[in-house]
């Protein structure tokens, strides 16, 4: 039994989890769409992936994470959901309400990109950046403009693991993000 059961409606071929439509896709598609959009938008693509990911995840986590949950429980739920949906796994033990670092040694996007297209020069896990941004916002009760997540190391660049730096501001300084 999944921690977060997906409701499948066979009459419509529609799968829903906490208000969101969920669709199965393999890494070939995930990475090919990523590549197509990068080729179209260039540098602007990273911001688009990050923001669309954060919006989709934020909307769902608001349904799944109880405001009465302890912070550690909120992170645990977010991490469990991430794994359940097949995006990989991450370790957020070095993260506090002031920010910190999240590390992943199993990223669907990075592993997928490597196997499909080989080493790249820039990080590829913008979806995870967006996911973590939404999770940190909800876990600590922060506004979207207070949280910025950037991937500094990425297995798709040849790094040993994927490393995400989480910055939390007081809300006035948004670092131009």
């Amino acid at each position: 039994m999944a921690d977060f059961p997906v409701q499948f409606n066979p009459a419509l071929n529609q799968a829903r989890l906490a208000g969101s439509n969920m669709v199965f896709h393999c890494h070939y598609y995930n990475c090919a769409v990523h590549k197509a959009i990068e080729e179209t938008l260039g540098d602007q693509a990273t911001g688009l992936f990050r923001e669309t990911a954060a919006a989709a995840v934020r909307s769902q986590l608001r349904h799944l994470i109880d405001t009465h949950d302890a912070v550690i429980t909120r992170f645990s739920k977010g991490r469990t959901l991430f794994q359940q949906l097949g995006f990989g796994s991450f370790d957020a033990q070095q993260l506090t309400s002031a920010g910190g670092v999240v590390v992943s040694n199993s990223s669907h996007y990075a592993l997928g990109w490597l196997s499909q297209y080989g080493i790249r020069e820039t990080p590829v896990c913008q979806f995870i950046e967006g996911y973590l941004k939404a999770l940190v916002e909800i876990a600590y009760g922060l506004a979207p403009e207070q949280v910025a997540v950037r991937e500094t190391d990425c297995m798709a660049k040849g790094d040993a693991n994927c490393r995400f730096v989480v910055e939390v501001s007081d809300g006035e300084d948004t670092h131009g993000h």
């Binding site: 997906v6 799968a15 989890l17 969101s20 439509n21 969920m22 669709v23 199965f24 896709h25 393999c26 890494h27 070939y28 995930n30 769409v33 669309t52 990911a53 919006a55 989709a56 995840v57 909307s59 769902q60 991430f82 794994q83 359940q84 949906l85 097949g86 995006f87 990989g88 796994s89 199993s106 669907h108 592993l111 997928g112 979806f127």
Partner: peptide
């Protein structure tokens, strides 16, 4: 997803992704 966060099925690794994201 298993503890590695991967969904092996049909000889592939799947994600159950957000339709809204795509």
């Amino acid at each position: 997803g298993n503890e590695d966060g991967l969904i092996p099925a049909f000889g592939l690794y799947l994600t159950r992704h957000y339709a809204d994201f795509y």
